[in-house]
């Protein structure tokens, strides 16, 4: 969106330059309100935003890796590791929350660095590198918990995912998770669109050889993209830990949903194009679709079918628009 292609014809209306994901999201939200008017009340839409927060944060982080030209398949299993690891480390002690969260972010940095180093130094394609990480982290979660995670996270830890601020003027109530989403979204947006790092990530994804020749330090830039993705996964994991109980499949499938969300937001796979707000809108769109299907009483499996169809439509449409733009 912020990167309107230079080939855009001047005669085209300004509407055509706005990322279509925003219109789709708007239309879906209108449909949901028509189905269920209570959704327009603060409890309705705040609950929706709260549910969508982990995916939105994850998608914004995943976008960094996608724009740099790769994939991060390890995000979902990192979420699981964060939830399982936190429950093991806190051991029901409410005072442990602060240092446990610090440890989790440290783990995130390590995972991101390992992914980045394997891709840049060992030159393993990120699909395989992060797939290996996903398998290994899955095993680590099982090892750590002995196969059957036990206990609960203390309320101080679950605060971020569960707590609400009540009696807020105008909007009534405000979940902490939504604040976390807005703050991380803003940070990631600024980092991507207002700093040199963001520009270098774009350059690297667009044409790695050209970027390298132009003096982009490939290793640190790619490393930061993977670290950002891992840190967003840790944040998403902390929120998800507050939502529900501890299990070894909390994060399962989240990496693919995050990629779907980024793609819905117009991110170009294999790099060079993407925007953080649009990726977050993509995540909200995906969540809105699930909510709508839920209201309409679709069984769980059919949601998968719809997700698949939407994915094909979104990517097919993007490819079509690109062809039109090029021709």
């Amino acid at each position: 969106m912020s990167l309107a292609p230079a080939s855009e014809k001047p005669g085209r209306s300004r509407w055509a330059q706005i990322n279509p994901v925003y219109f789709v999201l708007l239309a879906l939200l209108v449909l949901i309100v028509l189905q269920n008017p209570r959704f327009a009340e603060p409890t309705g839409y705040m609950n929706f935003l709260k549910r969508a927060a982990p995916l939105a944060i994850l998608a914004a982080g995943q976008l960094y890796v996608i724009v740099s030209g790769g994939f991060d398949l390890s995000a979902g299993s990192l979420i699981t590791l964060v939830v399982v690891g936190s429950s093991m480390l806190t051991n029901n002690d409410p005072n442990a929350t602060a240092w446990v969260i610090a440890v989790m972010y440290a783990i995130g940095v390590v995972v991101g660095c390992v992914n980045g180093l394997v891709v840049t130094v060992l030159r393993v394609p990120s699909l395989i590198a992060t797939l290996g990480m996903m398998i290994s982290l899955g095993g680590l979660s099982m090892m750590w918990s002995g196969g059957s995670p036990r206990g609960y996270l203390p309320d101080t830890f679950r605060f971020f995912g569960r707590a609400l601020i009540r009696d807020v003027p105008v909007i009534g109530l405000l979940p902490i998770a939504v604040i976390v989403m807005v703050v991380s979204g803003l940070l990631l947006w600024l980092l991507m669109s207002r700093t040199n790092l963001g520009r270098m990530i774009h350059a690297l994804g667009d044409n790695p050889r050209a970027a390298q020749l132009a003096g982009v330090p490939v290793l640190p830039v790619r490393l930061s993209a993977f670290v950002v993705s891992s840190l967003s996964a840790v944040t998403a994991g902390i929120l998800l830990g507050g939502f529900a109980g501890v299990s070894t499949d909390v994060g399962t499938g989240y990496e693919l949903q995050a990629i779907t969300a980024a793609v819905l937001g117009g991110a170009q796979l294999l790099g060079g194009r993407g925007s953080v707000p649009a990726a977050i809108a993509g995540a909200l769109t995906l969540q809105a679709i699930f909510t709508l299907l839920n209201f309409m009483g679709f069984p769980q499996p059919l949601r998968q079918v719809v997700q698949g169809l939407i994915l094909i439509a979104a990517v097919g449409l993007a490819a079509y628009r690109k062809k039109q733009g090029a021709g």
């Binding site: 394997v118 395989i128 797939l131 290996g132 990480m133 398998i135 290994s136 095993g139 680590l140 090892m143």
Partner: peptide
């Protein structure tokens, strides 16, 4: 579980 961790490492 250790097997699974090793598997990931071996693939990479």
């Amino acid at each position: 579980f250790v097997k699974q961790v090793l598997r990931g490492v071996i693939i990479v």
